[in-house]
Design a protein around this nucleic acid. Structure first.
Lengths: 331, 331
DNA sequence: AACCGATCTGAAATCGATTTCAGCAAATCA
DNA sequence: TGATTTGCTGAAATCGATTTCAGATCGGTT
């Protein structure tokens, strides 16, 4: 493939001039025309690696997510892409799979390739290390919660309040023994949602004590197992608040296997899923603005790219309780 | 950040020797130890951009997919990742969103960054141009069908046969007016699945003619609209074969909105989805080995990386009809 | 002791763009 | 007209690794 020297020769100018044409610096119209003609003729496209080496930057935005199969992250990715494209950035997705080691590998790639920015949903609040990125001036935006290694821009949804609302709703519907299936203890979101769940219990009238809590892994299988254990326990719950949509699918399956379904058992879940409409009777869910979280995160990257010394800011987007099928008929 | 010259100076050797240590060439143990110590001391990590420029290659594998929200592709991505990691390659996902323009942009990135390989589910059989990649010796593997621009390694599932089996099953169950909701005409998979559907009609005894066919977009909304139109038509079908899982979700929703559900209406769909268990009574589905397709594709990339002049080969993986709830009681 | 071959080393070239800097020409001003 | 500014231009340095190549070192043979 043709390089900038070939083009320069073909156009009868120096490589510097070709570079200037490519980057919009001032060049006499006559030369500019010759350069453009030569570029077209030779099918020249500037080598991004060479450019990246010299410029110490690239126009690729890294998005490191915890689980590629989780619709929350795929919707988020859409939001990131839509904003990135307005700034002519390409988005590459990296699936860290909740594994700090894989995550570290991708952070290395982002660092080494001098990506234009990194949006990351940290696998671990303590282990995720973004200091090198920051040190090199690469904008980093965290989803949910800033890693401890460095304070960075963060976009989160109002998880605690969402969980509070969902749990209160179940209480209002008359359920007595409400359990919670939440994510791993290392996950900020899992912890916040559990807090909201517990607060709803404390603040109910009369206050309720010691609801059952299961920690799972935010995956379908984990949700299934947690629900199965709850249902098969000596004192099974009559309702459950599940803190993400994949686990909700698993939990529902466990219920179905036991011929249980709403409203005999109350279910509220975090997250939207296109399949949730197919579950009838339907369940209440806490809508997470995944797409908008993605948009906001990408906007923060762009903002910080312009002026790197801004103080880190946190954007919290509201969650919204969507009530469906509240026709509980207490038995 | 420290570069190779800093390390060389610290270790009292030349940069060439540092490079040799990094790449496993023979170096006296004494020097090697000094170099390793200096690397650790300075926290040195080789700059991948510089390496990429010199080597004209990188250790990133590009995966360009049509729709990030489609579980088929996310499962496929898992397969790719698992194989890639055995070869120490990082996988980056690019969401082309069925848009030839976005796709072209990502192909440009792959080309410019000299990726170790590209796995692509072509947005269009005619427009997708991979000749430049091929020309530069970058292994390209297509999902479903090779683009017309160049004959490349291809991994597909046996779509035609799967669709035939699913449709025949509906016929055997006694449904009379079976419609098909398939994807865009530009999609090879959509066309193959439609062919299987039509063949099942031709080869049934007695042969059936002119079944209703709707072309949609492989998305939930498209499936919903197509099904709504079918159901609201003068002569609605009593069964439907839907060629992907997202459209199946939409189609089911349209049915539910009209208080219709299996087995009053027969449904067979392509693809697996974790939520399909939640749809009860359940539907028959054609299992696509998405994960294995990803694995095979990645293996082909690795194979071709070793010896670039192999003839392009095509791997076809079997689909499997999963029959659920065949308790049709003809009315 | 002289020679040969094998092994290792570092100086320098290389990948392909960007950017600095000095030089030159044209335009502006006194 | 001469001095000064302005605007373009191209040669060369630069980014940071890899790799070629010529030379140094060492052990083993005759």
């Amino acid at each position: 493939m043709a390089n900038i020297y070939d083009v320069a020769k073909a156009a009868g100018v120096s490589p510097a001039t070709v570079s200037r044409v490519l980057n919009g610096a001032r060049v006499t119209p006559d030369r500019e025309a010759r350069v453009r003609a030569a570029c077209a003729e030779l099918g020249f496209k500037p080598n991004r690696v060479a450019r990246g080496l010299r410029r110490q930057s690239s126009d690729v935005l890294g998005l490191i997510i915890a689980d590629i199969e989780n619709p929350f992250f795929t919707a988020l990715a859409r939001g990131v892409e839509d904003v990135a494209r307005t700034a002519a950035l390409s988005v590459v997705l990296c699936n860290a799979d909740d594994d700090p080691e894989k995550e570290a590998a991708y952070l290395d790639v982002a660092l080494a390739e001098h990506m234009a920015g990194v949006i990351i949903s940290p696998a671990s609040m303590t282990e995720t290390d973004v200091t090198q990125l920051i040190g090199k001036g690469i904008p980093v935006v965290a989803i949910d919660h800033s890693p401890e290694s460095a304070q960075v821009d963060t976009v989160a949804s109002d998880d605690e309040r969402g969980a509070y609302a969902a749990t209160s709703h179940l209480i209002d519907e008359g359920y007595r023994r409400i359990a919670c299936i939440t994510g791993p203890r290392e996950s900020w979101a899992a912890v916040q949602r559990l807090r909201g769940f517990l607060r709803a219990h404390r603040e109910s009238d009369p206050p309720r004590r010691r609801p059952a809590v299961k920690y799972a892994d935010f995956r379908v299988r984990g949700g299934y197992r947690a629900m199965a254990e709850l249902l098969d326990s000596a004192n099974p719950p009559d309702a459950v608040m599940v803190t993400n949509n994949l686990m909700a699918a698993g939990a529902l399956e466990a219920m179905y296997d036991r011929e249980l379904r709403p409203p005999a058992i109350g279910v509220a879940a975090f997250g939207d899923a296109f399949w949730s409409h197919l579950v009838r009777p339907s369940l209440s869910s806490v809508h997470q603005p995944a797409y908008d979280i993605g948009r906001s995160a990408a906007e923060l990257v762009l903002k910080r790219r312009g002026n790197p010394d801004l103080d880190p800011q946190t954007v919290v987007l509201p969650t919204r309780l969507e009530i469906r099928d509240s026709s509980r008929r207490p038995s």
